[in-house]
Simulated assay, not measured.
Amino acid sequence: MIISRKIELDYGHTLPNSFSFCNQLHGHRGIVVATVEGKIIDREGDPQEGMVMDFKFLNDIMMKHVHDVLDHGFAVWKNDHEDLAFITKRNKRVVITDEPPTAECLAKWAFNQIIPHLPENVILKNLRWYETPNNWADYEGE
């Protein structure tokens, strides 16, 4: 069985090597959808009986390890020295990325934030990161 949970967050970033407006400091209303797979719990009397996992638990993981880390914060590339110095001086919520903080990079980051906190019997199949309503990246792990 496969289930998905969606959260939303506001974040900023810049892509210094981009030829478009994305090389400017700017923000997005991001949407993050985590899709997990597992067997339906069939232990009689279990509070999660009939579920892969309670949506609330998946939401709690996503909120703590993605939303609360980046919401109203900034994703900045470690090699973007000028912006990195400015942003880390100015902001408390900063995610420093190993590659430019594209939707692809942030999908991978969020996937890796969530995966260690899932129950043993639940697998993160896909992380979809919407940068805008019309643009998104899917990451399925390595």
Rank of each mutant, 00 (worst) to 15 (best):
E37I: 12
S18K: 10
T35V: 09
E37K: 11
A103P: 00
F21I: 09
H65P: 09
L127P: 04
Y11G: 03
M1L: 11
M51K: 12
T97F: 00
V122G: 07
E140R: 12
H28S: 06
V36H: 01
Y139N: 00
F74N: 00
R93C: 02
D54V: 03
K78S: 10
P100T: 08
E49P: 11
I41L: 09
D83A: 15
N79F: 10
T88Q: 15
H67W: 05
D80E: 04
T102R: 04
I7R: 05
K64G: 11
H67C: 07
V36K: 04
A34V: 07
E104A: 11
Y139E: 02
E142G: 14
V94H: 03
L124F: 05
P16N: 06
E142M: 14
D80P: 03
V94R: 02
G50V: 12
N91E: 14
L84D: 05
D10T: 09
N126P: 15
D83F: 10
N112G: 06
G30T: 05
V76H: 01
D60A: 12
N134D: 15
V76G: 04
G45E: 06
A103E: 06
K56S: 10
F19W: 14
K108W: 04
I96V: 07
H81K: 15
K125S: 14
H28G: 00
N112E: 13
E49D: 12
V95P: 01
K125H: 13
E49H: 11
G30R: 02
G38M: 04
K78N: 07
V33K: 13
L106T: 07
P116A: 12
Y130R: 11
N17R: 15
C105K: 01
K39G: 11
I41C: 10
L84R: 01
V52C: 05
F57N: 09
G141E: 04
S4A: 14
